[in-house]
């Protein structure tokens, strides 16, 4: 029941479940808590339930953005 840090991509929605793709590996997940989810969105899944839709799919992008905000030394 560890937190799964890798986002999956929603490729199909049927009712209260969706098929989530993790780079080729596909899993079913419930989407009760992300009612606005669309095919193509990236989601975080915990014990079989999508708990949130990602605003940026790339972690590096958001970490880079944070570094700009913090205004550290530029290299």
């Amino acid at each position: 029941m560890m937190c799964l840090a890798i986002p999956g991509k929603v490729i199909k929605i049927c009712g209260s479940t969706a098929i989530i793709d993790y780079g080729g590996v596909r899993r079913e997940a419930r989407i009760d808590f992300v009612p606005d989810v669309k095919v193509g969105d990236y989601v975080i899944v915990h014990t079989g339930f999508a708990i949130e839709i990602l605003k940026e799919k790339d972690a590096l992008e958001s970490i880079n953005a944070w570094m700009e905000v913090l205004g550290g030394n530029d290299e």
Binding site: M1, C3, R30, F33, H46, T47, G48, F49, I51
Partner: peptide, 30 residues
């Protein structure tokens, strides 16, 4: 792997299914 699996087991089965359910907020929501 998920309480959803336990629930589906109950749907396909006449027997009683009891899920022993630990976890913090992230697992309580499911």
């Amino acid at each position: 792997y998920s309480i959803y699996d336990a629930y589906r087991l109950a749907l396909k089965n006449d027997r009683l299914v009891v899920h022993f359910s630990p976890g913090f907020e992230t697992t309580t929501a499911p």
